[in-house]
Simulated scan of single mutants.
Amino acid sequence: MQRLQTRAQFQAVLAGSTVARTAHFALHRCALDGPSHPAAPLFTVDDVWIGAMVPKRWAKRAVTRNAIKRQIYNVSASADVVLPRAAHVVRLRAGFDRKEFVSASSDRLKAAVRAELQQLLARAAGARP
Rank of each mutant, 00 (worst) to 15 (best):
V89D: 00
A20S: 11
A127D: 09
A20M: 02
K60F: 12
P55E: 02
W49G: 08
G95W: 04
A15Y: 02
A40I: 09
R85H: 13
Q2A: 10
D97A: 15
I72E: 10
S105G: 10
V19G: 00
K99H: 15
R29S: 14
V102Q: 11
K60E: 10
M1K: 04
A12S: 11
Q119E: 15
F25S: 04
R91Q: 11
W58D: 13
A12C: 06
D97Q: 11
W58H: 15
R114C: 13
A86R: 08
L83W: 09
K69F: 07
D107K: 12
R57N: 07
N66H: 09
A67W: 03
M1Q: 05
R98W: 03
V89P: 00
V89Y: 00
N66I: 07
A39M: 03
V81E: 00
A52D: 03
R128A: 15
Q71I: 07
F43R: 03
V13L: 06
R21Q: 12
A62V: 06
H37T: 04
V13H: 01
R123T: 06
D33V: 09
A124L: 09
I68H: 08
M53P: 01
H37F: 05
N66F: 01
M53L: 15
A111Y: 07
R123A: 11
L92M: 15
V82R: 14
A59W: 00
V45F: 00
G95S: 13
L42K: 00
A26D: 00
A122I: 03
S106Y: 05
S17F: 00
N74F: 07
E100G: 15
A20V: 05
D80F: 05
V82C: 10
R91F: 07
R65F: 02
L121M: 14
Q11I: 01
L4C: 09
R61W: 09
G126Y: 02
A39S: 12
L83T: 02
A124F: 00
I50Q: 09
V113N: 10
R61D: 09
P38L: 02
P41T: 09
A67V: 04
M1S: 08
A115F: 09
N66T: 11
A23W: 03
V48F: 02
T18I: 12
A111P: 04
R98P: 01
L14Y: 13
V45S: 01
I72G: 04
S17M: 04
T22V: 07
A94W: 11
A8T: 10
V63I: 07
A39F: 03
R57W: 05
L4W: 13
R98S: 11
G126W: 05
A20G: 05
P55F: 06
F101E: 08
R7T: 13
L120C: 09
V63A: 15
E116C: 08
